[in-house]
Amino acid sequence: MKAVNTSLAIWTAVVMVFFYLPIAILVGFSFNTSRLNILWEGFTLEWYASIWRDAVLVRALENSLIVAAISTLLSVVLGTTGAWMLYRYRVPAVRLWQTLVFIPMIIPEVIMGVSLLILFVVIQLELGFATIIISHITFCFPFVMVAIEARLAGLDASLEEAAMDLGATPAVAFRKVLVPYLMPAIVSGALMSFTLSLDELIVTYFTASAGTRTLPLEIFGRVKKGLDPTLNAISTVFILATVSVVLISELLKRRSR
């Protein structure tokens, strides 16, 4: 048992090295004097200074974060209630609905982008944050649903019924019993949604307006001139910021206990 746990921990560490190897390169190149992100030349902090001059890039990062945060939140709500409802109630043609939910995952991004663009023209929805967020929710919520469904499989029905027997309304039972039970799946779904939304390029191109360009659009546009290390610098700052937020919040949680 002990040996198994140790080897699992070692394997996890190996996979983490795999995850962070390119990230280490990315961070390293943020200190590179060469403008082209290809060969190492020398050390500089210049690119960190240039983040503050690059208003367009910072604006794109802001847009990306706004879109990713709202899309994640709404995808989680839509996907969690959706998965629970389809699981708990006898819904007519449930298999059809489940298959339809599956479409955004299989549909090529360009088709999704073009067809949503045409839809927005038909329903006269002006391109902007709303249209990007709608599109992002559409390709994110199926991921949440799949994660929740996997967690629901094998759910002990007595759990919810016991709560109801104790006099809780279904809504309270959902909130007090089910949500905590589903929490790991909700967190997984949220992490996947956030990641997908933050890095999506093609659907976003078709549904964004001039003022709502996101970071991936901006970065892709820069490939031709060479991806300059400012992009690495901004990624590094973003990673550092997230890591510190996570660590600090964990520390606070532990202290409060």
């Binding site: 073009v114 191109y205 078709f206 307006s209 001039a210 003022g211 892709f220 546009g221």
Partner: peptide, 14 residues
């Protein structure tokens, strides 16, 4: 208001 594209056809589509 500067909006950008990466190919002629991408521009035409929009």
């Amino acid at each position: 208001n500067y909006e950008a594209y990466a190919s002629n056809e991408e521009m035409l589509a929009k």
